[in-house]
């Protein structure tokens, strides 16, 4: 990846105005990079920065950011989660827009913070106000930047992995597809049972690893059936789980897991090679957005 934008393209993005116009101030977005992008997928963070800048958005990275706290919230540790939520609010509450490359983290802030801090003096209102500023990456492009500004070219066939929290909690469903429809040369093919969870589920993946892996195996099988060149996703948890599982399958030959007897229709056939996965932001960045 690396080469996000050429100087020439940057110049042209500025020249065409994009989100910036002579009369309005430039858009400014604070990036919440998420733990997984920070540690394991820095390229996704860089792609988000590159794409937003190419679209004329000024990107800031507030230093004090930590984690949204979803892992502890979903594990039932609400008191410990409040520390993370309050930190997030303190860091981001004065930003006009907060953008994050994760539907799951966005749903945590937007859907759960108000519930978590409900009735807590001095925090309930701030939770609501901060929640209203948060956008998942593709959602921000569609709702704030404007779809018509997106021009990229990426030749290939891909399938899109629908992530659960983004779809069912955040209710951001069409936005990533709308963004990808702006990529010339990219053909999206349908994924069987796309609504089914991939089996990540945060601590679920370590508490019930065998069930989690069985869910991944079926998802990988369906992905292989699409014959796509790669998979596009909006959540790095799903990506880390699925690519990690695919790597293990390759590692262990055709045996997906010794703890379970593979059932032929539910586990990938030996011939299915793992598909590479990319975040929506990476597709746009590699597609030389602008």
């Amino acid at each position: 990846m690396g080469n996000l934008q050429t100087d020439e393209s940057r110049a042209s993005s500025r020249a065409t105005g994009r989100a910036t116009s002579a009369t309005s101030k430039p858009l400014r977005a604070a990036l919440f990079v998420t733990c997984l992008a920070d540690s394991f997928y820095p390229d996704v963070g860089k792609s988000v920065v590159g794409v937003l800048r190419a679209l004329g958005v000024e990107v800031t990275f507030p230093e004090g950011q930590t984690c949204c706290g979803q892992v502890t919230f979903n594990s039932g540790y609400w008191a410990d989660t409040k520390a993370a939520a309050k930190r997030f609010i303190e860091v981001f509450e004065h930003e006009e827009y907060v953008v994050m490359p994760s539907g799951s983290c966005a749903s945590m802030v937007r859907e759960q913070y108000p519930q978590l801090l409900d009735g807590e003096p001095g925090w309930a209102d701030r939770a609501l106000s901060t929640a209203a500023r948060v956008y998942e990456f593709s959602e921000f492009l569609v709702k704030v930047v404007g779809l018509e500004k997106i021009h990229a070219t990426y030749h290939g066939t891909a399938t899109y992995h629908t992530s659960c929290h983004m779809t069912r909690q955040l209710q951001v469903v069409d936005e990533p597809l709308a963004v990808l429809s702006r990529v010339n040369g990219l053909q999206l093919v349908p994924l069987r049972n796309n609504q089914d969870c991939c089996g990540f589920g945060g601590t679920f993946s370590v508490k019930l690893p065998e069930v989690s892996a069985a869910m991944a195996d079926e998802k990988l099988q369906h992905m292989a059936e699409t014959k796509a060149d790669f998979v596009i996703a909006s959540d790095l948890g799903c990506m880390m789980h699925l690519t990690g599982r695919a790597a293990r399958q390759t590692h262990a030959g055709a045996t997906p897991s010794s703890s379970v007897t593979p059932s032929s229709s539910l586990t990938p056939s030996a011939s299915s090679a793992p598909l590479p996965m990319k975040h929506v932001a990476q597709v746009l960045a590699e597609g030389g957005l602008v």
Partner: peptide, 30 residues
């Protein structure tokens, strides 16, 4: 993380984090 490792690989942990990149290059590029 034993439950993770029992069924999956971890992504490569080589290379700089996003934060490190931001400090070294990202912020200045902007």
């Amino acid at each position: 993380l034993g439950g993770w490792k029992s069924e999956r690989e971890f992504p490569s942990s080589a290379g700089q984090t996003f934060r490190e990149w931001w400090h070294k290059e990202g912020e200045r590029e902007g």
